[in-house]
Nucleic acid binder design. Sequence first.
DNA 1: AAGTGGTCTAGACCACTAC
DNA 2: TAGTGGTCTAGACCACTTA
Lengths: 247, 247
Amino acid sequence: MGTPTIGGTRYKEVKNAMLAALSAQEWKGGEAIPSEKRLAERFGVSIGTLRKAIDELVADNILVRHQGLGTFVSQHQRDRHFFRFFRIVRQDGDKTYPTVSLVSFRKAKATREIAAMLGTEPNARVFTFVNRLALHGETVMIDNIAVAEARFPGLTEAALRERPSTLYNFYQDSFHINVVGTEERLRVATADDAESKLLEVPHGTPLLEVRRVAYSYHHAPVEVRISHVNTARYEYVGPSASHEEPL
Amino acid sequence: MGTPTIGGTRYKEVKNAMLAALSAQEWKGGEAIPSEKRLAERFGVSIGTLRKAIDELVADNILVRHQGLGTFVSQHQRDRHFFRFFRIVRQDGDKTYPTVSLVSFRKAKATREIAAMLGTEPNARVFTFVNRLALHGETVMIDNIAVAEARFPGLTEAALRERPSTLYNFYQDSFHINVVGTEERLRVATADDAESKLLEVPHGTPLLEVRRVAYSYHHAPVEVRISHVNTARYEYVGPSASHEEPL
DNA sequence: AAGTGGTCTAGACCACTAC
DNA sequence: TAGTGGTCTAGACCACTTA
């Protein structure tokens, strides 16, 4: 193979070559990639080795296999792994999809903090917008979101408002950016004026703050999101740290 | 093989047989299991198939491989995956091991809620104890812990106090119980009288509440823990939802 | 040097999906 | 029926650890 990246082993080389192809949008979100046999020939490895590379990409949630159908570039929402990124559930455990509405949208310069998290230069231009999320008809969560203008050229309030699906799906379809992972930090914060109105709680009510950075391939930062959650009736589901299937 | 559990495929059967051997304490925490060659012969499968079973057990954090040395039953603390279970870090990202001190210990009947989480019958006898955790010399977190008496026969305050290592390591060494996964729910709570004294904050100060159930093999509940964290200078690190290694 | 896990091969057969 | 991924084999050679 062309060894686009030097990896210690054959299958890592194959994995990196496939990540490169994904970054170059040779295969786009939702599309099927070539069959294992064809890819094995293309990269000059046996099917077993090719499978090991794909195994890791599947473990990373970058690809999805469907027996008898093919292997596909992960798509958000449609793949029902929506709740991997949306972790707020009712305290009785009930999971529902949130109703999202856009509260504000503007262009701005990144604060030092946001720039650092986005990995851009300080003062880079960013789009910032605020979403209100409701569950069971009740506003539960306010998201403050920032993305780099350079990565989302031509993003408009109208496009955001009219997106047919989830935000990460919109990033994928309209900007060919695949969110494949996130990192989150949680702490307690309090409701400011705007939030107390939207959430219908008194000013200063303690809220759960979730600071998230979303990443694409190669851990490249895509989006920064600071969420404030009213946990009176809802809560955040943390990591499960085990994948053992029930018998 | 003896098919102790019916699994659709050979490697799942092998995996279940190995889980059974682990539950039966044939291989104990920290010990090496037999070599791949020997295990392949024992279960009557090829090495490749045996490896696939072990692959999953490693992915579940139940086994750990060391090239040239062997495959071992996961040990807490010693394996440095301590921070998989301890998720509180300073807001600047600094990670340190907590200093733990036992505040109280007693036998009691489980509340309905605790019994449900522990999977015991209502009113089952439990041990409940409280730990105070300090980071950088500052008390940051109070843990309220409950375990079933039936699973921890003869547990005493002295044994707890004198344990040489982490709690989960103590469970492993003294009761042969391996914690392999957790589930956590987070919300905002407030400091009660006892907590406000220990954490040196005013009564009613909002705290981050983490409700955790720890599981052993086959998702069997082992321990329930309700933690209250002062997030003024510390925070909770959430799931990362991606395992892609940096290049 | 001997023993371990890590990688890799070149197939085989099965189960599922679409036509 | 043809094409796909899912499982499985029976080896080979390499890299690492211990002695």
